[in-house]
Design a protein around this nucleic acid. Structure first.
Lengths: 199, 199
DNA sequence: TATGATTGATTATACATTCAATAAACTTAA
DNA sequence: TTAAGTTTATTGAATGTATAATCAATCATA
């Protein structure tokens, strides 16, 4: 039933095993109903062992978020290809595959993002990650503008909208069916063609 | 400090007083740390009284969400004006004022939306509300197309992107500064002018 | 033998929910 | 208009359970 999440396939030591267990427990029960005991069940070893690696629950969850956002940042492709190809890739990543594991990962991220409203550590980590992604996209768009491939007003603004759509899709995936997501994708492609690419 | 949320200004009976208290407690402590006791504190009367009006905590929270989404739906403007003016209004509502109460309301909605991943009642309510909003926007765009004011491929697709941006902004407001939101707004305006309005 | 891994039992607390008891408001009949 | 009666509002205390965190004890390993 549960798909494997790629970056957990080879947990490197006990710490990653605990993070993996925490992730699955979070997916299954949600942030509000997440307990050390449930993490322990997923972990396969006793819950006391978790306290041997983490001082408390909060520290563990902040570490999980840090770890997940690291994966997100690593998933942003490197600018190896032409700006046009790069944008193509970014758009595909925003709308993702509809695979279980992708959707589950997105949902976990959004659930943690909601906590940022009440937790400074979460807030800081999301700011860092969001900034990183926006700047990465802006850089590529700027390169495309310089190469004459793109025609925009301000690459930072364009990147900001890309990021908003990325986050919006993550949040909408929780409740929307695939058709709706497809509609958004089609319209966003139209935006890219008409508002980003030069004639 | 805490701004008043407009729709709570005249609580109509005990039920609405409890909903108001629940909303403020949710804002202050977040969904995960929300307890009946904290709601009771905000309520001003004893927590036992809450059980006189609601069978349990879940029922109360579902009622709060229902109530909040009703407000959201009522906030969608009626199509009294021209399609161009209407779209102007919708865009302003998506990006909202940066008033405390608006931001707080958005954050509470997003926090509840995250719960929809693990709660069927929440899921159902968000589906209903999202569909309603998308259809409302699509209707106006269709009218604009018929009147020759707009030029799009498919009004449903355009409406879907509007809604994704709406949700994305709600989620981003948790962590982003106002400058970033302004960037998104500027780029989205550019999209509306270049991809929606006819020449 | 020393160091870290691992466990089960334990503790203190916070929490959702119940309940019996009191107060307030409302109804009705003389 | 009042008195009695009835429902509704309100409370504080009580209960049982779930939970985070601790710890002393065992096990593995180098």
């Amino acid at each position: 039933m549960t798909n494997e999440i790629s970056f957990f396939q080879n947990p490197d030591g006990t710490r990653e095993e605990i993070l993996e267990a925490t992730f699955y427990a979070l997916r299954q029960h949600g942030y509000a109903d997440l307990t050390i005991s449930k993490i322990g069940d997923e972990f396969g070893k006793s819950q006391s062992l978790i306290y041997h690696h983490y001082d408390n629950k909060d520290e563990l969850l902040v570490d999980l978020l840090d770890y997940m956002l690291e994966q997100v940042e690593n998933q942003v492709p490197l600018p190896n290809q032409s700006p046009e190809e790069y944008i193509e890739i970014i758009v595909d990543e925003i709308f993702g595959t509809s695979s279980n594991s992708d959707v589950e990962f997105s949902q976990a991220v959004i659930e943690l993002r909601a906590q940022a409203a009440h937790d400074d550590d979460y807030n800081r980590l999301f700011r860092r990650s969001d900034d990183f992604i926006r700047k990465q996209i802006a850089r590529v768009i700027r390169a495309g503008v310089d190469a004459g491939a793109f025609d925009v007003e301000d690459p930072s603004q364009t990147a900001a909208l890309f990021h908003t759509v990325l986050v919006g899709i993550q949040a909408e995936r929780i409740t929307s069916d695939e058709e709706t997501i497809d509609d958004v994708r089609a319209e966003f492609r139209r935006y890219v063609e008409n508002c980003l690419l030069s004639e």
